[in-house]
Amino acid sequence: MNGTANAKGAPNTKTRRLLIRGALLVVYVLIMVLMIYSGRRHTILIDNKDAADGSYSAINGMEVSIDKQESSEYYPGDRDKAMVQGQKHTIKVNIFDDNKTIEKSFTVPLWSDVMIISVPKVVAGIEPWIAPFTMAEQIQEAQESAPPAGETTFQSLGSMIPEGMEEAQQSP
């Protein structure tokens, strides 16, 4: 090849390219994994309830914040949720009664969607104060919508219906 800077087909070029391409594949997978780890979102339920067996009791009044999110107030029987991204987080509890502040860090397992933190346990120092929350259906968002209507699909694929246009456009 006239003026081609690299020696085409030379064995060392070939190996180098193979290596670089292989490395890129690895990088591809790595980034994917990294994105999953750093981007995975979890719901944290923050619970302020008495224990069934009376081993601990709800805090009378407190302010809880997760990471640097805005804190909110909790009274006995309250339960609220926070969304977090990633696995390592801190919880900060400020108890009104004695103005005591407790700060603890915790790790959410990668593949668990919802965790529940019992703040009384945190305050009482009962381990484990964080546990996976299994009743998934409770947190299902009201995203219910009808199954795709069969009759209209051929039409919509014709992308000719104006409704489709508005959908795609969706002026905010």
Binding site: F154, Q155, G158, M160, I161, P162
Partner: peptide, 11 residues
């Protein structure tokens, strides 16, 4: 009427 004719062409 309106946009109804367009999806009739392809069939």
């Amino acid at each position: 009427l309106y946009t109804a004719p367009s999806p009739m062409v392809f069939p």
